[in-house]
């Protein structure tokens, strides 16, 4: 999954004219820091701020970070035990982040609308929100609720609330209504997990399963 995230971000940013050379990332719901670490290692990264409200996962993330001398350089990667609501909003929009990532978070949020309202305040004009989630379809219900939780038991019961899933069209509409992504800065990519091969891109997959969604703040 993680290499695909970077491939998706690269594709999103490729559509920006005159993108900044060194990027500042904000990773929301960073968990153990898989994405935050990899973003911090990229040569084009200035800094990564990664937040998560759960202290236990951040402890794991900090321990893992120490194993890479690149990441312990001052200012490279900072973990904050905070929710997005608690993170101070930038004074001016230009102080926001170039890339704000929200991976596999929205499907677990009770009120996605207000959550996203808080997220978008941290994106600088010309910057991107990139997120990944699952569409609310019969396929995703069967895979995440029935297979993963009831049959295979690989995730705890109650992890997924299918009713919270947001379809790609709904996501698109939500952002377009706020004036985001109107000048072509909007991309999606469907992905599927293939046992033995890992996560793979599937054209059109955003219509029925896991998908990436990227949208640019125009002003």
């Amino acid at each position: 999954m993680n290499p695909l995230r970077h491939e998706f971000i690269t594709r999103c940013r490729a559509s920006s004219i005159d993108p900044p050379s060194k990027l500042r990332y904000l990773d929301i719901g960073c968990g153990g820091g898989i994405f935050a670490e990899s973003a911090a290692r990229l040569p084009g990264t200035l800094s990564v701020t990664a937040i998560d409200p759960t202290p236990e996962v951040l402890k794991i993330a900090e321990g893992h970070k120490k194993r890479d001398p690149t990441l312990v350089q001052p200012g490279k990667l900072a973990y904050l035990n905070a929710s997005i609501e608690e993170l101070p909003v930038p004074d001016t929009p230009a102080d926001g982040y170039d890339v704000v990532s929200v991976f596999e978070v929205i499907e677990h949020v009770n009120a996605p609308g207000p959550f996203l309202e808080n997220v978008i305040k941290h994106v600088k004009p010309g910057g991107w929100i990139v997120l990944s989630t699952i569409a609310r379809t019969w396929t995703s219900w069967a895979v995440t609720n029935v297979m993963a939780e009831d049959v295979l038991g690989i995730v705890p019961k109650g992890t997924h609330d299918w009713n919270k899933y947001i379809n790609e069209a709904e996501m698109r509409e939500w952002f377009l209504k706020r004036g985001w992504g109107r000048t072509g800065g909007l991309r999606t990519m469907g992905v599927v997990y293939v046992p033995g091969l890992g996560w793979k891109e599937v054209p059109g997959g955003e219509g029925w399963g896991n998908y990436f969604f990227g949208v640019r703040r125009d002003e």
């Binding site: 993680n2 290499p3 970077h6 491939e7 670490e37 990899s38 973003a39 911090a40 290692r41 990229l42 040569p43 990264t45 890479d68």
Partner: peptide
């Protein structure tokens, strides 16, 4: 190369 491009260790 692929690992560097995707930020892997």
């Amino acid at each position: 190369t692929h690992a560097v491009q995707t930020g892997q260790d």
